[in-house]
């Protein structure tokens, strides 16, 4: 496994060019081209904002201001899209890139990693849009606590990579994973404080749910990190986030180990 890891480091240039290729190929042939990286989150934001402005009242948490709601929502939606799209792409990546694994001398883990990184670039492209809207909706300046953002992103990156490697390897043997995953992600979306603040659940949900959302779900802590750092402009949860990072690192280790164990079966199964 250590050998594989060192081998992976040697393939930085490959990962870099594959991420670039992924981004280039994605919108090739469409009219707006690269602009879609900006338009997509905008449209998504428009949909959710419309729903929560006209049909539902935005969920309010105890002592937490979620106004303006569009900004609150966008703050959670952007990283979630990175997370869910990464997992969906990664679980497909070995099957789509089967040719590469079979025909070229190619470290397979590059493919799920590229999926996560390419979606990460989309996330980064969404951030300027977010801050643009910040100045439209809110008059005050962005808090200095927004500088914690890279830390939160790092935790999310590690967590997503671990899961992505695990799912990608599993999906080679069980194609069912892709369908299961899509549904699990929908559930997971609602079990994570994205459309509501974390404190919202504690007030009304049964304790089991509160427990899952408030403690067990790593994405809760990561999303809460985004909310506090950007939206609320406060110090990130400095106790929970390191714990989440530890869990994420463990998951990355386990995921990579699992991937490495199944590696030899990929060329025959994809």
């Amino acid at each position: 496994m250590w050998h594989s890891f060192r081998n992976l480091l040697r393939h930085r240039a490959l990962i870099q060019s594959l991420v670039a290729r992924e981004l280039k190929a994605r919108y090739r042939g469409s009219v707006f081209g690269f602009l879609w990286s900006f338009i997509n989150p905008l449209l998504l934001l428009a949909v959710y904002t419309t729903v929560f402005m006209t049909i539902f009242t935005p969920p309010q948490g105890e002592g937490v201001d979620t106004q303006p709601y569009a900004l609150f929502l966008f703050c959670g939606l952007l990283p979630w899209t990175w997370f869910s799209a990464s997992l969906l792409d990664a679980s497909n990546s070995l099957l789509v890139g089967g040719n590469l694994i079979k025909k070229l001398l190619f470290p397979a883990e590059v493919l799920p990693i590229v999926s996560v990184l390419a979606n990460g670039v989309h996330f980064l492209l969404g951030l300027p849009i977010y801050f643009l809207f910040w100045f439209v909706f809110k008059t005050d300046a962005v808090s200095l606590h927004a500088l914690w953002l890279p830390v939160v992103m790092l935790v999310q990156l590690v967590f997503t990579l671990g899961l992505a490697l695990f799912l990608a390897a599993l999906a080679v043997h069980f194609r069912d994973i892709r369908d299961i995953l899509a549904n699990v992600l929908t559930l997971w979306f609602f079990m994570t404080p994205i459309i509501y603040p974390l404190s919202f659940v504690a007030e009304r949900a049964p304790w089991q749910i509160t427990w899952v959302i408030g403690y067990l779900n790593p994405m809760s802590h990561i999303l809460n990190g985004y909310h506090t750092a950007i939206f609320a402009g406060e110090l990130i949860p400095w106790k929970r986030l390191p714990v989440t990072l530890a869990v994420a690192l463990l998951l990355l280790f386990v995921g990579y180990f699992f991937f490495d164990r199944l590696r030899d079966s990929f060329p025959e199964e994809v």
């Binding site: 280039k24 190929a25 090739r28 040719n99 590469l100 079979k102 025909k103 070229l104 001398l105 190619f106």
Partner: peptide
Amino acid sequence: ALIELGAGFHPEISGRE
């Protein structure tokens, strides 16, 4: 290895890339 030529080609991007 000249095993599968162009195995790594991505159809959407140019020959140069």
